[in-house]
């Protein structure tokens, strides 16, 4: 029925969604960073596979960026940050793991329900990739909403961004994908450097964003 190229692309994209789910219930920052690194590796494989089946060698740059930058450099930097900030401990989630997972399942169902009917005209690889990419995006958003910790919010954003890159590479022949992935990498580098530079720990004794809320200008 389906060709091998579709099956492999589908499997890798499904793996990304699975890893997003894994991130939802990690309650330790170290484990969360590992899951993020794993997702980056799978993303890079998925992008590389797209580069092969679309015969678009420039996508290998994006794949290389994913594995070099997002799977190695960023996790290392994050790990150094959490050690420096001394927050390699449990992180609280809002609403409990079970509820979050249920919400996640609901979001995946929603994105499949939304994307699959409207992409009937596209080729099957793009179609599945976009649907699963939207799931990854929404799960990343869910994670950013449920976490209170600045580092895990950033990790949620990065997993959201992995979903976007999956969508961009899955949309066959899309121009500027490499440029966009570079722009995103710069954005992420800024965020990570931002945590360092802003020294949230130093100033607030916590990277809990609720503590940041206390410093809102109007409560001075």
């Amino acid at each position: 029925m389906h060709s091998l190229s579709f099956d492999v692309a589908h499997m890798l994209a499904g793996f990304l969604v699975l890893l997003s789910f894994m991130m939802l219930y990690q309650d330790r920052l170290g484990a969360l960073i590992n899951a993020l690194a794993a997702q980056a590796v799978v993303l890079s494989l998925s992008v590389a596979w797209q580069a092969i089946i679309q015969e678009a060698p420039h996508l290998f740059i994006t794949a290389g960026l994913a594995i070099g930058f997002k799977a190695v450099v960023i996790p290392m930097a994050l790990r150094r940050i959490i050690v420096k900030l001394g927050i390699d401990r449990e992180i609280e989630t809002v609403g409990g793991t079970g509820l979050t997972m249920l919400a996640g399942i609901g979001l995946v169902a929603l994105s499949l329900q939304v994307v699959l009917p409207v992409t009937g005209g596209s080729d099957p690889v793009s179609r599945e990739d976009i649907a699963l990419a939207l799931s990854v995006v929404l799960l990343g958003l869910l994670m950013m909403v449920t976490r209170r910790n600045a580092v895990s919010q950033v990790i949620g954003f990065m997993s959201l961004e992995n979903g976007i890159v999956l969508a961009a590479t899955g949309a066959r022949g899309m121009p500027l994908v490499v440029e966009i992935s570079v722009a995103f990498s710069i954005l992420i580098a800024f965020i990570v450097v931002g945590i360092f530079l802003f020294r949230i720990r130093e100033r607030f004794d916590t990277v809990d964003v609720q503590a940041l809320d206390r410093f809102r200008g109007e409560r001075r």
């Binding site: 990419a133 939207l134 995006v137 958003l141 950013m144 600045a150 919010q153 954003f157 959201l160 961004e161 976007i164 969508a167 961009a168 966009i180 954005l187 965020i191 931002g194 802003f198 949230i200 100033r203 607030f204 964003v209 940041l212 809320d213 410093f215 809102r216 200008g217 001075r220």
Partner: peptide, 23 residues
């Protein structure tokens, strides 16, 4: 602290917004 909080919030909300716009 207030400026950092503002920049951080702008950063996160702006990034999410811009990511959705890319989608």
């Amino acid at each position: 602290p207030a400026a950092i909080e503002a920049a951080w919030k702008y950063f996160i909300l702006g990034s999410v917004g811009i990511a959705l716009a890319l989608f």
